[in-house]
């Protein structure tokens, strides 16, 4: 058996995928270059920025630090899996509505971290949000409108409504 290539099967955004991958390929390269899902970004390559955050078994992980082969048998979600046919998810809508997006390069990773948080804790306070997204660097927004977006995506009351 040539272990330099591995056959893996996993669920990607709800659909089963089977493919041969090089043992030395990381999950980020698999997603971007082989599966052509370019929403997941490489910002640092070493787990220090969170731009490549995806969900594996519902948990946020850095795709740059995971080998493609390690996705075998797992449920994987990327930013492309967030919107449904009818439109954006609540979380995405909230990011748009509350102006959490500037350059947008960190946005997909942040959405994935936020999604994992809300699954774990449907009504997080600001401290919980800050903690959950602290592995996602944003250089544009200062995070404040991102906090607002995530809080609003919970449906929890947060004071004055912005237009």
């Amino acid at each position: 058996m040539d272990q330099h290539r591995v056959t893996i099967t996993f669920t990607l955004n709800g659909k089963s995928v089977t493919m041969d991958v090089p043992g030395a390929m990381n999950a980020l390269t698999l997603i971007r270059e082989r599966l052509k899902l370019k929403g997941t970004k490489e910002g640092c390559g070493i787990g220090e920025c969170g731009a490549c955050t995806i969900l594996v078994e519902g948990r946020a992980v850095n795709a740059c630090l995971m080998l493609a082969a390690q996705l075998d048998g797992r449920d994987v979600q990327t930013v492309e899996g967030l919107a449904h046919e009818e439109g954006l998810s609540l979380l995405q809508e909230s990011f748009v509505k509350h102006h959490a997006v500037q350059c947008g390069f960190c946005t997909p990773g942040l959405l994935m971290s936020a999604k994992a948080l809300l699954a774990e804790n449907p009504c997080p306070d600001k401290a919980a949000i800050a903690q959950a997204i602290s592995g996602n660097i944003c250089r544009c927004t200062g995070y404040q409108q991102i906090f607002d977006s995530i809080r609003h995506a919970t449906g929890a009351p947060t004071g004055e409504e912005k237009t």
Binding site: T78, V79, E80, A83, Q92, V96, G104, K162
Partner: peptide
């Protein structure tokens, strides 16, 4: 504070 022209594409990746 209208919706940004680029935000929807960005949240969709």
């Amino acid at each position: 504070s209208i919706l940004r022209t680029d935000a929807v594409d960005k949240v969709k990746g």
